[in-house]
Design a protein around this nucleic acid. Structure first.
Lengths: 191, 191
DNA sequence: GCCACCATGTAAACAGTTACATGATTAG
DNA sequence: CTAATCATGTAACTGTTTACATGGTGGC
């Protein structure tokens, strides 16, 4: 056996962002927040060590940049070797989806708590995604405005549309679930 | 500061399953596969150590059971203390959803590869969830049959309905995405 | 004066996956 | 005879989160 390849997907996410433009670790966090964070989040505790490793492997290069007043930035740019590595990963087979919904875990055991409590839990979920969907739709409107001028954003739009579909499904499920629980609550002789 | 509570959610998942019926580690894996695995998966490497820890804390009790021929089973049952702990967790605030979609990560950087390759990736995704949705709908039909007799399964149904909504959203997104990429591919002067 | 934001990083703890070890039974 | 399933567990590794450490700038 040669080596069980170090398949750090978050490192590829960073590599992909750097392929578009040079960024500091701090900038990367902000970019993630406004784009891939929807389906692939990462904190500073992952980003800084990942950048260091990528630099060690020669996939990115970091340059310290003095900026009067503000703390110095370390701007990273992708290397030719990094681009090759990124392209190699992009055509490799894709891992299955990983999801973790604590709300469903609690709801699955919902018979142990008050129906009212479960209804509240779903209402909160519903409220949160109502707001998130609005934010997403703002992104989408902006993207559609620039799309005819540059098709660069087509793949970004694809992922935003994914979010839109999913969030709507969340809201539809929540409405349905609330109705099911309310009907249950009104059945006489029921706890 | 007293102690940053050990909030192992997977342990609560196990506790919840044991609250319904005594199970061995192996049985737990199977139960997860057919119920909460949809939104909270766990392998043997998590289950066995978790059971040990739960037993150390007195939240579950394990009893070895001889079974002629087959390997001995260790059946765990929840204790009163465990039930209390489970109920405590159920009313605590719920953590946000965690998702990881490698397919979207790759698609986000999709301009770096052939449009055809991206179309293939989405088609595979689509095919997988077409099958998974059918399986889920089988579960749902069975659940609806027993529901009028016992409302026990209402919360199970709630989580299955969640899966149904989400998987349908996946398929709708996939169809839309495929159309977007095919339209793009036919635009002249486009790569 | 205080809080938010800019900016980088390390260390410890926790969570999760994969591989290994062992071995019997049953269905094809 | 071979593969799948039954059954439990450990060890090593990878990935992620959270806390800590440090310190300047700008707005209210």
């Amino acid at each position: 056996m040669v080596q069980i390849a170090n398949e750090n997907k978050t490192a590829y996410a960073i590599l992909g962002l750097l392929n578009h433009e040079p960024l500091s670790g701090y900038d990367i966090r902000k970019r993630i927040d406004g784009s891939i964070g929807l389906f692939w989040d990462a904190g500073f505790g992952q980003i800084y060590p990942a950048l260091k490793k990528l630099a060690d492997k020669g996939l990115v290069e970091g340059k310290a940049e003095k900026s009067g007043g503000r703390p110095d930035k370390k701007i990273y740019r992708i290397t030719e070797k990094g681009r090759k590595e990124l392209e190699k990963w992009l055509v490799e087979p894709t891992a299955k989806e990983h999801v973790r919904y604590e709300i469903l875990l609690k709801l699955f055991f919902g018979s142990l708590v008050d129906t009212e409590r479960n209804i509240e839990t779903i209402k909160e979920f519903r409220a949160r995604y109502t707001g998130l969907l609005e934010t997403l739709e703002g992104y989408e409107r902006n993207l559609r405005l620039v799309l005819p001028k540059s098709q660069d954003h087509l793949y970004y739009l694809l992922t935003v549309r994914f979010g839109s579909h999913i969030y709507r499904a969340y809201l539809n499920w929540a409405d349905e679930a609330l109705e099911m629980l309310r009907n249950k609550a009104t059945v006489p002789g029921d706890n």
